[in-house]
Amino acid sequence: MAAGLAAALGSAVPASAGPTLDKVKQAGAISCGVPTGIPGFAQPDNQGKYTGFDVDICRAISAAVFGDPDKVKYVPLTAQQRFTALQSGEVDILSNNTTWTLLRDTTLGLNFGPVVFYDGQGFMVPKKLNVKTAKELNGATICVQPGTTTELNLADYFRGNKMEFKPVVIEKIDEVYAAFFSGRCDVMTGDGSALAAQRIGRAPNPEDYVVLTDRISKEPLAPVVRHGDEEWHDVVDWVVYAMMEAEEKGITQKNVDEMAKSDSPDIKRMLGATPGMGKALNLDEKWAYNAVKLVGNYGEIFDKHLGLGSPLKLERGYNNLWSKGGLIYAMPIR
């Protein structure tokens, strides 16, 4: 219903830049719905300021729109609230570890931007068990939270592969991890990024544990906007693509000024030396330059918050560039 209302209003306002971009420019800030707290993705620092991978997506959009990465109002949202907050216009964008699914895309009246993080359910085992793939887990004792999709995926996977497992069902996630690290079960299952974070963060000795590379579910996480405002959707899409493209072209926060003088037509178009791209998006011609200069390219923000430069130490894996064996693929900017 709210989506229909949004669509009606969207078509009623004859603005070239789209209602959300107009509203954002007028308000002087983007209202960005982030998770209340997920290590590496969005977490308040000791001074209460949000930092993280999800946060940097909003900062990049702010840099592209305003030339300033900090014109963002962060609205921490729980998983239950986030879609209402977007539908009702309380936030302009969700950067909220949201999995892209058909029903969310259609019946909830949402539009998904490019996938910024390919997550999936995986397994963590102690090294001493000497397990190399998930197929070897027949008969294992597995710690899992009840009533979650994690539990369903687990049961499906084992049934599909004609394997047996003994579940140890514990209500609170914190206690599930505590049970695993104290040895009550052989295997811990959960989203790959969460497993890696817990391995580093709370294992008595992280080297004793390994996260298997198998993924038994697809959890593509993407930023979300409302149905019915294509211009704003475009802005979100292309800012994210620009950050991915920047990594592919080797443009970093440090060298972006030199790269702007490059002779490559691709880079000149992207960084605004050859005008046209910014105008097409109703943004300043320096939109991509600002996003990379003030926030960083995709690889840089990944490393800073999730990758080797962070406490989480996640491998790039599926989140590497397509040219390096991953799934990150930016559409051409021309």
Partner: peptide, 16 residues
């Protein structure tokens, strides 16, 4: 909730 959120710091995991 602030206490819960403080727990999400990736430098300080597992002090619930």
């Amino acid at each position: 909730n602030t206490a819960n959120t403080a727990l999400t710091d990736s430098n300080w995991q597992g002090f619930a």
